[in-house]
Design a protein around this nucleic acid. Structure first.
Length: 354
DNA sequence: AAGTCGGGGAG
DNA sequence: CTCCCAGACTT
């Protein structure tokens, strides 16, 4: 190991310790060393992994690639099915952009992803990180891949105390100096793996780090403090009401949320606007029962406390908003998590009604 | 540059 | 409880 950080030392560590992840190589090429990864699978995994842990992504990736083995299959899918399969993974704009991107690639690129960082970054949902990652991993291009892990590793190696996001240019420059011409994809994944398993946010395992001797923060004892970040403002608590209506034929009253904004494009229960004080406005004429227990859920920038009211109606009832989804077409797993929490509470109460 | 946008696991 | 995560997009 050298006194200055270099790609060779890290790749040596990676070759011995790399976690085997489902998207590192296509199934048909398992055990065939050197086979380049399928760009579709690299793209899909990278989008799913945006701000999301490997553990959370795994089952979604398997499900998506089983349902839609190629980008053409995904492009031809129904929007509602894709949104339903994405439910629970969060950041639903990713799913909408996933479909947009698949349809551009299938339509404008004849089903073949472009192979340069610049062209990739012009596709929906592909930003600086994802474009560089796909170019490096799927197309063997020496692009500078910078995610949260890389930022942390670079900040520590160079003991950079400038808080993010102001430090981003310096961290990117540091990452660029280390990016190799050979095996750029493996190198990118190696730095991220290092950040995920050794150079962790809290109590990093510096003693077994392949870049230990080169790390300035370790020498100065500042590793666990880096990278610094500008403090975030506290989350306010918002209030709301949700209406769960069960028709006597088993259908639930649901509504598709608008594409833009919170939980955009997802199914949900009718209810008050959470940005305002919760004024009751039931979506249908019925006798309502207010549940004693409320749903609590935390989003990125606010806490939510949701009152639940439930009602049973007959098939003559006409909703003011939303549509009744027939029993066989309703799967709670297609709801975003806060809406599924509402269902879980309401379902238990509805079972005890007449 | 700052705000919006999910959800789960670690500490 | 807070912080983080293989960030992108909008304003």
């Amino acid at each position: 190991m050298c006194d200055t950080a270099n790609a060779a030392d890290l790749l040596h560590w990676y070759d011995a310790h790399a976690r085997v992840l489902p998207w590192r190589i296509s199934p048909a090429a398992v055990n065939v060393a050197g086979t380049p990864p399928d760009p579709y699978r690299v793209w899909l995994s990278e989008v799913m992994l945006q701000q999301t842990t490997v553990a959370s992504v795994k089952s979604y990736f398997e499900r998506f690639t089983t349902l839609w083995p190629t980008v053409g299959d995904l492009a031809a899918a129904e929007d509602s099915q894709v949104m339903g399969e994405w439910a629970g993974l969060g950041y639903y704009a990713r799913a909408r952009n996933l479909l947009k991107c698949a349809r551009v690639v299938a339509g404008d690129y004849n089903g073949a992803f472009p192979d340069t960082r610049e062209a990739l970054q012009n596709l929906p949902g592909i930003g600086p990180y994802t474009a560089a990652a796909i170019a490096a991993i799927a197309f063997d291009r020496s692009e500078v891949v910078v995610d949260g892990n890389v930022e942390r590793v670079m900040a520590r190696i160079h003991d950079i105390h400038t808080p993010l996001p102001a430090a981003k240019p310096a961290l990117t420059q540091a990452a660029a100096k280390l990016t190799p011409k050979k095996r750029p994809g493996d190198y990118a994944q190696a730095v991220m793996d290092l950040g995920a398993t050794i150079c962790t946010p809290k109590s990093p395992a510096c003693g077994i780090c392949p870049w230990m001797k080169a790390c300035k923060a370790r020498a100065r004892g500042t590793a666990s403090e880096l990278p610094r970040k500008t403090p975030k403002s506290p989350k306010p608590t918002r209030l709301g009401i949700a209406y769960v209506v069960l028709r006597d034929d088993g259908a639930f009253l649901l509504e598709r949320r608008p594409d833009k904004g919170l939980l955009g494009g997802m199914l949900g229960w009718p209810g008050s606007d959470w940005s305002e004080a919760p004024s009751p406005s039931p979506p249908i004429k019925a006798e309502w029962t207010l549940l004693a227990e409320e749903v609590r859920h935390t989003f990125t920038h606010f806490h939510l406390r949701l009152q639940i009211t439930i009602a049973l109606v007959n098939t003559d009832a006409q909703p003011l908003t939303g549509e009744f989804l027939p029993k066989p077409q309703f799967r709670p797993s297609e709801l975003p998590t806060v809406m599924r929490k509402v269902y879980d509470l309401a379902h238990g109460a509805l079972k005890n009604m007449p």
